[in-house]
Computed example of a mutant assay.
Amino acid sequence: MDAVKRLFLALALISLLILVGVVTFIYLEGFTPLEALWLTVASLSTVGYGDIVPHTDAGRLFALFLIAGGVGLFTYALGTIIAIVVEGHLTNVLGRKRMEKKIQTLQDHIIICGAGRVGEQIIGRLKKEKAPFVVIDLDEDKLNHLQQEKIFVIQGNATEDATLARAGITKASGLVTSLPDDSENVFVTLTARGMNPNIKIVSRANLDSSTPKLRRAGADKVISPAIIGGRRMAISILKPASVDFVETLMYDSGLEFEIEEIRVNELSLLVGKELKDSRIKQESGVMVVAIKRQSEEVIHNPNSDTIIQMGDLLIVLGTRKQLELLEKLAAD
C-alpha cells in the first residue's frame, strides 16, 4: 500500500473513531453533540480534560479506549503525512489529480501502455511530433519522471477497464501497448477494442506465436522489436550507407527533411488528377514516395499518370514548410 493510501486509511479510521466516540458519549453520559465531540477530540488528542469529563464508569472506560486508540492512530497518520511531504508524494498526488482532469478533456489522443525501453522510444517520437498522448504504467518512479516533463500519466494496470477509462479510451484515436508480457498485451488489446471499437491499436509482440493472437484480439498492427531489430542489423551490415540515410531521415530531429502522411480531402482540387498534373512538386516541392488507397492498396513509387483519388493517403518527403503547403493543397 503506498503512502497516500495509508494516509487516507488513517484519516478514515480517525473519522470513524470520532463518530463512534460522539455517539457513545451521548448514549453513556447524556452529553449534547457538541459536548460529546469536545470530549472525544480531547481524549483522542490527549490534551487533557477541562470542564467536561465522563462521570460514569462506562464513560471513563470508553475514554481510556479512545485515548489508547487516538495516540496510535494520530502517530500513524502524522508519520504518514511526514513521509508524503518528505518523499514529495503530496505534490505528485495533487499534480496527478489536476492532470487526470485535463486528460478527461483530451480528444483523438494516443494511449501508451508501458513506459519501459520500448515505451520510452514511442514517447520520444510522439513528443517530437507534438502529438497528444497519455502514458499508463505501474512504476511510480518512471511516472514521476515523465510528469516532471509535463507528460500526461496514469498510474495503474493497463489491463483494467477503469485504468483505460481514466486515460480517456472512449475518446482516444489510438493505443500502443508495449508491455513486456505478450499475454498482457493481448488482454489490453482485447479490453481496449471492447471499450472503443473504432480505436487504432498497435501492439508489441515478443514471440512470433503471439502475433495471430493479438490480431484476433483486435490489434490493427503487431510489431516485434526483436524481428525488426534483427532485420535492421542484417541490412546494416549489407547496406550500411542506405540504412544510415533512412535512420537519419526518420530519427534525426535536426534534419530538415521529414516523412509525412497527408490525407486528400474530398473537396481537394487534387482529386481526379494525374500525379503529373497535380502540381504537387511545383507548388509544394515535396516528393510523393507512395500512395495508400482507402481499399488498403499501397502504390509504391507511383507513376506520373497515377490518378489521385478522394481519401488517398499520400506518403511524402519534404521540409516542414513544404509539407505545410501540401497539407493546405490536399485540404482545399
Results as ranks from 00 to 15, higher is better:
311 G>L: 05
149 E>K: 12
118 V>W: 01
41 V>M: 11
96 R>W: 08
115 A>F: 11
247 E>A: 14
308 I>L: 10
302 P>S: 03
132 P>G: 07
229 G>W: 04
274 E>F: 15
49 Y>R: 12
10 A>E: 04
188 V>L: 03
295 S>M: 11
137 D>I: 02
98 R>E: 14
218 G>T: 08
99 M>S: 15
117 R>G: 02
217 A>D: 02
104 Q>I: 12
183 S>D: 07
147 Q>H: 01
242 S>W: 08
150 K>S: 10
62 F>P: 04
272 G>T: 02
299 I>V: 13
25 F>A: 07
12 A>L: 10
41 V>L: 15
52 I>V: 14
244 D>K: 12
214 L>N: 00
34 L>P: 02
217 A>K: 02
317 L>P: 12
16 L>M: 12
26 I>M: 12
108 D>R: 06
318 G>N: 04
255 L>H: 13
112 I>K: 00
157 N>T: 05
234 A>F: 02
282 Q>P: 11
222 V>M: 08
145 H>K: 09
206 N>C: 07
143 L>S: 00
224 S>P: 15
82 I>S: 02
141 D>M: 03
74 F>V: 14
127 K>I: 00
143 L>G: 00
267 L>H: 15
59 G>I: 06
261 E>D: 09
9 L>S: 07
118 V>K: 09
264 V>A: 06
184 E>Q: 15
128 K>P: 02
318 G>L: 08
174 G>N: 05
21 G>F: 06
316 V>D: 13
122 I>G: 00
157 N>I: 03
278 S>L: 06
170 T>H: 12
50 G>D: 12
54 P>C: 05
20 V>S: 10
8 F>Q: 04
209 S>E: 13
233 M>W: 15
262 I>F: 01
299 I>R: 06
1 M>C: 06
70 G>H: 05
194 G>H: 01
231 R>K: 11
66 L>D: 08
37 L>Y: 01
255 L>N: 07
223 I>P: 00
94 L>D: 08
5 K>I: 13
13 L>G: 07
71 V>L: 13
250 M>E: 10
193 R>L: 11
196 N>Q: 11
207 L>D: 05
64 L>R: 08
165 A>P: 03
257 F>R: 12
306 T>M: 10
327 E>C: 12
2 D>I: 04
107 Q>S: 14
60 R>P: 04
186 V>K: 05
145 H>T: 15
279 R>D: 15
